[in-house]
Amino acid sequence: MARVRMSMEDYDYLFKIVLIGNAGVGKTCLVRRFTQGLFPPGQGATIGVDFMIKTVEIKGEKVKIWDTAGQERFRSITQSYYRSANALILTYDITCEDSFRCLPEWLREIEQYANNQVVTILVGNKIDLAEKREVHRQRAEDFADSQSMLYLETSAKESDNVEKLFLDLACELIREAKQNKLDNNDNDRPMPGEGKTISYLNCCSLT
């Protein structure tokens, strides 16, 4: 079954996830670890936005991931990507106090530009550099709680929690999408997950 689905590229849900956060906190590395399974050692700064796609095997979910540049000068173009996002991964670097302190500023941006149904998750990256940690876990958890966000610590280098991050997010999004479908079936409000089943039969043409 899985193979058929693969071949037909159909999916039940389609989610757009956008990563945001200060420059150099490891957004691109998280995405590449998840979609390509590698950790590029000499990753350069992202220019503007980057796009990657991966199909996740929870009810055939497809995840479109827009990775954004953290640099201030690209702010205007990255902001324009928030609006259509179903989920935002707000990333900071646990070894960099500054990137944590900027979080309220990012939250303001989210409030201003993103859809108000967006699912936001806070991610502290680079836990492999535990000895250089500057932001205590408890502090980050408290902050996430106060903003009613999920919180997760990851390492793109060691691949810690990266899968979990995206899969958790996917589950959450699916849950919300279903709930929304039940709640607002007659409502024409845009729903997260624009995916639909496509069931054209085609078996003979294989092989």
Binding site: G44, T46, I47, G48, V49, D50, F51, A69, I77
Partner: peptide, 15 residues
């Protein structure tokens, strides 16, 4: 065309 706008814009910034 939303996707196209997003994607083409992204391609303009290709790295």
């Amino acid at each position: 065309y939303d996707f196209f706008v997003s994607r083409f814009s992204e391609m303009c910034h290709s790295n």
